[in-house]
């Protein structure tokens, strides 16, 4: 896949970082404001997709990136599952139990395990959307040959 013109590249360079930071903001404020893991993860994936579209990538590199994102996706979702199972193993022994201290309402560090779930779901969604994008691009690249 070829990259785009210099204008696009320069603009993407300026924007991608901000998009990335905004995604992280949405994820870590997931338990306080609208948004959360899924919405933030989509934004994170958006910044990566912008970069790949603007700068282009060759086939081998795309395959390597897809392998990496699949691995991250699986690790993140496994962590979410382990967090859910930790409720079953520790504390009150109930699946998905929010056993951590809840803190005060409205603080950034509060709501027990919800921020943790949000962070890992965010990584999972970002990685999986990137994987979907890369897989479809790889299909398209394969077709040319």
């Amino acid at each position: 896949m070829k990259g785009m013109t210099t204008i696009v590249k320069k603009t993407t360079q300026l924007i991608a970082g901000m998009v990335f930071m905004y995604g992280i903001y949405v994820i870590i404020h997931g338990h306080l404001t609208p948004g959360g893991g899924f919405a933030g993860g989509v934004i994170l994936a958006g910044s990566f997709i912008l970069l790949i579209l603007a700068f282009g990538s060759d086939f081998v590199k795309l395959m390597k990136e897809e392998t990496g994102s699949t691995l991250y996706e699986n690790l993140a979702i496994l962590t979410v599952l382990l967090l859910a199972l930790s409720g079953l193993l520790l504390g009150t022994r109930i699946f998905f139990m929010n056993w951590m201290p809840k803190g005060t309402l409205g603080q950034l560090i509060s709501a027990g395990m919800l921020p943790l779930y949000n962070i890992f779901v965010g990584i999972e969604v970002a990685a999986s959307i990137l994987t979907i994008f890369l897989a479809l691009v790889i299909f398209k690249e394969e077709m040319k040959e």
Binding site: N74, L85, L88
Partner: peptide, 19 residues
């Protein structure tokens, strides 16, 4: 406690196999 494990075990298995 067996009831949620019926869902959790195969899910964990799927992800572990992928990793």
């Amino acid at each position: 406690p067996l009831i949620p494990l019926f869902v959790a075990i195969p899910l964990a298995g799927a992800f572990l196999i992928m990793i």
